[in-house]
Simulated assay, not measured.
Amino acid sequence: MRQTQEELLKILTDIGIEHTTHEHPAVFTVEEAARHSDGIEGVHSKNLFFKDKKKKLFLVVTLADKPIKIKELAKKIGAKSPSFGKPDLLMEALGITPGSVTPFAAANIKAHEVTVILDEEMMENDLLNFHPLVNTATTTIAPRDLIKFLEHCHKSPEIIRI
């Protein structure tokens, strides 16, 4: 069953993760999100959902302002000819819509194997910001708590320098 924003935030609270959520208008790109980041502490993210030619799924989470070269990234994560996951696959695998891609979607992963990749440089920051399953809010947590959440969802992430 697909989690709601409220259910996600309850999970975070129940497992002892300190978090702050800021509501804002719907955003669909990193650029749009940047317009609503004033007053939100921490770094912001870019979240990419890929499927490769072997049908392996990847959720890559990095810094919002980091340029990504898909071919270089593919080598680093072991993906063969990756392409962005289509909206129907995004909903099926992560239970979210385009514009809402987030590592918090690990709470929705049930039927698919999705490799979660976290950028080591992003994880070196004090606070991280992600959509709480919807693109009308931003939730701030500490990097260690992101790991704790992912492990709670049985998704041990790979941390690499992207």
Rank of each mutant, 00 (worst) to 15 (best):
F50N: 00
A79L: 08
L48K: 04
F50P: 00
H19E: 10
D65W: 00
I77A: 10
L48D: 03
T21C: 13
K76Q: 11
K55A: 05
K71D: 14
I68T: 13
E31V: 12
A34S: 15
E92N: 10
P25R: 09
D38H: 02
A26R: 05
K69Y: 13
A74F: 04
K76D: 09
E23Q: 14
G78H: 08
S81Y: 09
K75S: 15
D38Y: 07
I96G: 09
P82F: 05
T97C: 09
R35W: 00
L57R: 02
T29N: 10
K55P: 00
L89D: 06
L63H: 08
T21A: 10
E92P: 02
K71W: 00
I40W: 04
E41P: 02
I17K: 02
E32G: 05
P82Q: 08
E72A: 14
P25D: 14
P67K: 12
G42C: 00
K86G: 04
A79G: 07
D65T: 07
L90V: 08
L90S: 02
A64K: 06
G39V: 11
V60Y: 11
K71Y: 07
T21F: 02
L89M: 06
E18C: 07
H36S: 00
K75T: 12
E72Y: 09
A74C: 04
G78F: 09
L59E: 03
